[in-house]
């Protein structure tokens, strides 16, 4: 468990995102209709977008602070990000995608081999490693993207609608993977969705986002 402090305001054209939330939970759910700013919020935490004012902290580590003039670049934030469309690098195969972050941070795979085999086992990727990413199904892409993010041992994992690209019949097959990540690896998650039912089975705490603003909070049943 880790405390995530988000207090940001970000304006772009007519849209304003304003979120203030401190939670010390394993899974923070963010629920809201499309256009409510869910993805913008994740990109802000990941360091892809810069807020106009405010602060973002993971535990004691300040990722962004307008007051202190701190704005860590994305590559130094140690935030794992899995976008809705997975965004697997099309020029690399599955293994190349999974190992991408490690090649940079550790210079060799040796140190993270145990983690790698754990992820391959948990996410059931063993048979996919040599595959081209274009040949994967929506659910497989999500699992590879999750492994790619977790290989860098992030402090927090951001999941943007991980079930959106998966057809309804297969959704029940992805969720258990995410629950196993939570149970076996203890990585805190921020889980974004427009489907409230999904959050019931996974989130400890949920914030409701509408038009860029938090309109409600609820603890999981």
């Amino acid at each position: 468990m880790i405390a995530l402090t988000i207090d940001v305001t970000l304006r772009q054209q007519a849209f304003e995102l304003h979120v203030r939330e401190t939670s010390a939970v394993e899974v923070l759910g963010v629920f809201g209709p499309s256009g409510s700013g869910k993805t913008t919020l994740l990109e802000t935490i990941a360091g892809i977008r810069t807020p106009d004012t405010g602060e973002i902290r993971v535990g004691d580590r300040v990722l962004f602070s307008a007051a202190a003039g701190i704005n860590l670049p994305a590559r130094e934030r140690h935030i794992g990000y899995v976008p809705q469309d997975a965004l697997l690098f099309p020029n690399l195969d599955v293994a190349g995608n999974i190992d991408y972050g490690v090649r940079h941070r550790h210079h060799s795979l040796a140190g993270v081999l145990p983690l790698r085999s754990t992820l391959i086992e948990i996410l059931d990727l063993g048979l996919l490693l040599e595959r081209r990413v274009q040949k994967l199904s929506g659910g497989e892409k999500q699992r590879v993207a999750i492994a790619r993010a977790l290989m860098t041992q992030p402090a927090v994992l951001l999941l943007d609608e991980p079930l959106a690209a998966v057809d309804r019949a297969r959704r029940d097959r992805i969720l258990p993977y995410i629950l196993r990540i939570r149970r076996d690896l203890h990585v805190p998650l921020v889980y974004v969705t427009h489907d409230e039912a999904e959050l019931n089975s996974i989130a400890d705490r949920v914030i409701h986002l509408e038009a860029g603003h938090v309109v409600g909070r609820s603890a999981a049943p």
């Binding site: 990109e43 990941a46 360091g47 892809i48 670049p73 994305a74 590559r75 130094e76 934030r77 140690h78 935030i79 794992g80 990000y81 976008p83 965004l87 690098f89 991408y100 972050g101 940079h104 941070r105 790619r148 993010a149 860098t152």
Partner: peptide, 18 residues
């Protein structure tokens, strides 16, 4: 080239040159 690939690579720790 979709810039989002580049943004995502940055979250994985890659430098601009890489």
């Amino acid at each position: 080239v979709d810039r989002r690939y580049e943004d995502l690579a940055a979250t994985l720790g890659a430098t601009p040159f890489r």
